[in-house]
């Protein structure tokens, strides 16, 4: 996953037109027209608390993940930051967000010059189709971000998808329990 050389990957993506079995896409930084990455309110607050600011400049960080995930239970993702990772210029923290998840933080990594390479891969859960955001803080204090649109065929928290209203959800569960008790009594 992370071992694939990015030039080869972009080559494969171009050749396959994204329709290949891998369906992997290298995300180039956001178009220059967008000056900041706008995060939803909840994610902005988390970023503000963690990074001291929620203003993300597009660029430097990239998200490598499939454009379509058949199951949200395990989606491979690579956070990659373009940084020399020296004592003077390195990445200090990388975070990932999925606003569609009940708890939006996907990843939170603290690294430093000892990492050598600002690249972390893992597997995450996604509840539904939507945007995934990534943010990186550099040693000079600047914040960089990117976003990626992903289609999730089957979400990770099934209950959450079928019923978004927790109150109604609880009532429905109580009704089900009653029905079960009645059936048991018979």
């Amino acid at each position: 996953m992370a071992m694939i050389d990015s030039t080869r990957r972009s080559f494969v993506t171009r050749i396959g037109g994204g329709a290949g079995a891998m369906a992997l896409l290298t995300v180039v930084p956001h178009p220059a027209s967008a000056e900041t990455i706008d995060l939803p309110e909840r994610e902005s607050a988390i970023l503000e608390a963690a990074f001291g600011s929620s203003v993300l400049t597009p660029g430097k960080i990239s998200l490598d993940m499939p454009i379509l995930a058949e199951t949200g239970l395990s989606v491979p993702v690579t956070f990659k930051v373009d940084s020399p990772m020296t004592e003077a210029d390195h990445v200090t923290r990388i975070m990932g967000f999925a606003p569609g998840n009940p708890e939006p933080v996907l990843a939170d990594y603290q690294i430093g010059p000892r990492a050598g390479l600002a690249e972390v891969s893992t597997r995450i859960r996604l509840a539904r189709t939507g945007f995934v955001y990534a943010a990186a803080k550099l040693s000079d204090g600047t914040l960089w971000g990117t976003k990626f649109s992903i289609i999730v065929t089957l979400g990770a928290c099934v209950e959450d998808i079928f019923d978004l209203d927790w109150q109604r959800d609880a009532e429905r569960r109580a009704m089900r329990a009653e029905a079960r008790a009645a059936a048991a009594a018979e």
Binding site: M1, A2, L73, S74, V75, T78, A98, N101, P102, E103, P104, V105, L106, A107, D108, Y109, Q110, I111, G112, P113, R114, A115, G116, L117, E119, V120, S121, T122, R123, I124, R125, L126, A156
Partner: peptide, 28 residues
């Protein structure tokens, strides 16, 4: 790495079952 922290991850509920991580370090 010899007592010096080189990687720190705060894991969240969005982490998949059987957490898998790939990261790097400099062999100093």
């Amino acid at each position: 790495y010899n007592g010096v922290e080189v990687f720190h991850a705060n894991l969240h509920p969005a982490q998949s079952t059987n957490p898998y991580m790939v990261f790097h370090t400099v062999a100093v």
